[in-house]
Write a protein that binds this DNA or RNA. Structure first.
Length: 455
RNA sequence: UCCCCAGUAGCUCAAUAGGCAGAGCGGGUGACUGUUAAUCACUAGGUUCGCGGUUCAAGUCCGUGCUGGGGAGCCA
């Protein structure tokens, strides 16, 4: 007989004479003459309860069935006479597939701390909370692709290994095939030059925006920064759309539409899992998601933001002056206290932003934008790109970048250049936003952070 | 990388002023004919993170290292 997934069984509309389910035992309760066995197979948050009467053969099996064991139960799907569930399985047979030693199996039936579960990252998806996290993660990734596909964006696979320190966005991981401890020069290495793991697919994506129109990348990126915070990981996934013939306003509009669509999709498709987070992880999750969905995002120029920060009575550790980069405390004040909703800050001083952002007519600011959301901080960072060759090369000279390294990037401005804009969204931060999970390590299957590479 | 806090049973934690190492949960054994984190009884379980020091005596005080958490910087 073919296995029925528990999600299907729990959604049944009528009883079934024959059903076979397989899964992991969440809890077993014995009575005299029969036992309750609750199974979860990961297909959904809910467990299905099987009731098995004791026979000598079944008792022999049940003696070895404990929390965490994998089993197959065959029987009939019937309406449950007990409270708490609509359906249950009246078991005719139970087969032990994989035993779990009760002395050493680390997952209990009660709640564990996130810190402890991180030390058993290989087993934590078997818990309710982490099962829910990773079902939502999967659904969110699908929703990203659906959003862009619906809008006619093309999905571009930009390279993971890169040869140029593009952007200068933080420390990069070196890639080499030279033997450990080798003192050979980069010319002798695999690519004949230094190579690194990418920190962003943006520069490559720009080439495709200036060819296919609207496109996006969605893949892993790597930062070798020794940053130890609940919002950073050394390996994380980033979504980077890039649009031709678009400006900064189009860019902000796309970001807002995207966040609203993703939130709406998760509320619609992962209701049971989201409820778990609203109930146990973040009491304010539902109001937060409602705000994201229904409230228009604030749009505020950097200059206006500085004015607000200078006028408020709220004390800051870092004094505010036009020209400084906004500190975490400033960003949090703006979106958590001043407006209590997502805030776009745009037109930043050029001195604190990278070379590729489009210079505004004031010659002091660039067409950059950050989207700040409560609790997470910056979830989107983007800009209109500098499409004018002379302005772009002048900026590169100012910042002492070697133009030869960017010859192909500059070609796009030599031949048929066009205004274009794009941004990067941290996928894990989006996931933290929709689940209320506070630590990025807890929305990643096997998180990579400084001094942490166990799994 | 900097600042702050913590580390005691498998897990979550307690231990008065420096004076006998404790509880709940989990595990094991048994009871119970409809349980829902089942319940009840009994029971086993410890290098108090490592190293060094102070003291008659250290889980507790001092130094140092490691690990984890929170905050900051950097960023998505």
């Amino acid at each position: 007989m073919k296995r029925t997934k528990i999600k299907q069984a729990l959604n049944a509309v009528s009883p079934m004479d024959d059903i076979l389910v397989k899964g992991w035992v969440r809890t077993k309760r014995d009575s005299k003459g029969f036992s309750f066995v609750e199974l979860n197979d990961g297909s959904c948050l809910g467990n299905i309860q099987a009731v098995v009467d004791h026979t000598p053969e079944i008792e022999a099996v049940l003696a070895r069935v404990g929390t965490g064991a994998s089993v197959a139960v065959a029987g009939a799907l019937v309406e449950s006479p007990g409270k708490g569930q609509k359906w249950e399985i009246r078991g005719r047979s139970i087969e032990l597939i994989g035993e779990a030693d009760q002395e050493t199996f680390p997952l209990q039936k009660k709640r564990h701390s996130d810190e402890f579960l991180r030390t058993i990252a290989h087993l934590r998806p078997r818990t309710n909370k982490y099962g829910a996290v990773f079902r939502i993660r999967s659904e969110l990734a699908q929703a990203v692709h659906k959003f862009f596909a619906d809008k006619g964006f093309f999905y571009i696979h930009t390279p993971i290994i890169t040869g140029s320190d593009c952007e200068g966005a933080g420390e990069m991981f070196r890639v080499t095939s030279l033997p450990a401890g080798s003192s050979l020069p980069p010319e002798e290495d695999f690519f004949g030059k230094p190579s690194q793991l990418t920190v962003s697919g943006q520069l490559n994506a720009e080439m495709f925006a200036l060819s296919l129109g609207d496109c996006y990348t969605f893949g892993p990126t790597f930062r070798a920064e020794n940053s130890n915070t609940p919002r950073h990981a050394a390996e994380f996934w980033m979504i980077e759309p890039e649009m031709a013939f678009a400006d900064l306003a189009d860019n902000m509009e796309l970001g807002e539409e995207m966040i609203k669509r993703l939130v709406g999709h998760i509320l619609e498709h992962c209701a049971a899992d989201v409820d778990l987070f609203a109930k146990w992880v973040d009491k304010d999750l539902m109001p937060t998601l409602e705000t994201l969905l229904n409230e228009p995002f604030v749009r505020l120029s950097y200059t206006e933001a500085v004015d607000i920060l200078k006028k408020t009575k709220h004390p800051f550790d870092y004094p505010v002056e036009w020209g400084i980069d906004l500190q975490t405390e400033h960003e949090r004040f703006l979106c958590e206290e001043q407006f209590k909703k997502p805030v776009y800050v745009y037109d930043y001083p050029k001195t604190i932003k990278p070379f590729y952002m489009r210079l505004n007519d004031d010659d002091k600011t660039v067409a950059a934008m950050d989207c700040l959301v409560p609790r997470i901080g910056e979830i989107i960072g983007g800009s209109q790109r500098e499409e004018r060759l002379d302005v772009l090369t002048a900026r590169m000279d100012e910042m002492k970048l070697n133009k030869d390294d960017y010859w192909w990037y500059l070609d796009s401005r030599r031949f048929g250049t066009a205004p274009h804009a794009g941004f990067g969204m941290g996928f894990e931060r989006m996931l933290m936003l929709v689940t209320g999970v506070a630590n990025i390590r807890d929305v990643m299957p096997f998180p990579r952070t400084p001094n942490s590479l166990e799994f």
